[in-house]
């Protein structure tokens, strides 16, 4: 007879010995791996968009090229006239907060690095520039704006670079939606796998459960033992998943930062993003527990 102080209490349901445990750990590990990679992508794209919104999206410039078929005096007069029309039009557009045509001095300052101090800018057919502040919440259709502007002032054009960024953001938003769908699907598939293995196990444990019931165990008593067991599997699976995911995220990150152009180098994950990813095993543990708990309760309801 051994000393009772050192005899750990055994679980009535022998869930550990079921060979579905390893299968589930692998499934959950893979799910968390995909989840972590996708999530890091979403978070990176998200912070990228936030950066762009802050620095670029709020302002757009309009450029008016002086007509080249006139002499420079007439040409710059025409450019000035178009600038006035453009300013008037832009001020009437919803979502544009502020329209500021740049003065000659400001233009000179802008061009100075290319032309040097010696050149008198007023003697050159230099483009006029209008600075526009945009309400970042307003949903402006830049393509339409660009067309409308061209009818008002044929030589005016919206800054190409920023329009391109805008399209990139729309693309990133699309990616985010796909990623969110993936996250949802991965969670659903994992829950499904847990649901099926739990149901299978309830079948295997039928005679023990029957005895527990007859002795007076409530469904919650049984469901808790299952939830605890599955929670541990979910946690271990989650740890396995992020152990593989973390180096993979660094690898993808290093590939991304190798891209020229500096757009993607802004995508490094913030500390809070990493905390999110590191917390995934807790999340998979929770999903496993909740799914199992309700599966057990639901199935046992049908027993007497």
């Amino acid at each position: 007879m051994s000393n009772p102080q050192f005899v750990p209490r055994k679980q009535e349901l022998q869930l550990k010995s079921e060979n579905t445990s390893l299968f589930l750990k692998i499934i959950i590990g893979i799910a968390v791996f995909i989840f972590a990679i996708t999530l890091s992508g979403v978070l990176a794209v998200d912070s990228m968009i936030t950066n762009w919104n802050k620095s670029i999206l709020g302002s757009v410039t309009v450029q008016i090229i002086p007509p080249s078929d006139l002499n420079w005096e007439k040409s710059s007069a025409a450019a000035l006239a178009m600038e006035e029309k453009a300013v008037e039009f832009l001020r009437s557009v919803n979502g544009i907060i502020k329209v500021t045509p740049l003065s000659d001095e400001q233009l000179a300052e802008l061009l100075n690095p290319w032309l040097g101090d010696d050149v008198d800018i007023s003697k050159l057919p230099a483009p006029r520039i209008i600075d526009i502040k945009i309400d970042t919440h307003a949903n402006i259709d830049f393509d339409q704006l660009s067309k409308d502007l061209a009818t008002v002032a044929p030589n005016a054009s919206l800054d190409n670079h920023k329009l391109w960024l805008n399209k990139l953001i729309a693309f990133a938003d699309g990616l985010k939606m796909i990623a969110t769908t993936i996250l949802f699907l991965v969670s659903a598939i994992t829950s499904g796998a847990i649901f099926y293995t739990t149901n299978m196990s309830l079948g295997l444990q039928h005679s023990v459960i029957e005895i527990l019931h007859i002795i007076g165990a409530k469904d919650t008593y049984i469901a808790q033992q299952y939830a605890k067991h599955m929670g541990i599997i979910g946690f271990i699976g989650g740890i396995i998943g992020i152990l593989f995911a973390i180096p993979a995220i660094f690898f993808i990150g290093s590939l991304a930062s190798a891209i020229e152009g500096g757009i993607i180098s802004e995508t490094s994950l913030k500390i809070i993003d990493w905390l999110f990813i590191l917390a995934l095993p807790l999340f998979s543990c929770l999903i496993a527990m909740v799914t199992t708990y309700y599966t057990v309760k639901q199935t046992l309801k049908k027993m007497l």
Partner: peptide, 9 residues
């Protein structure tokens, strides 16, 4: 259902 459990006890 919960009453059955307490009966069984």
């Amino acid at each position: 259902r919960s009453q059955l459990a307490s009966f069984r006890r």
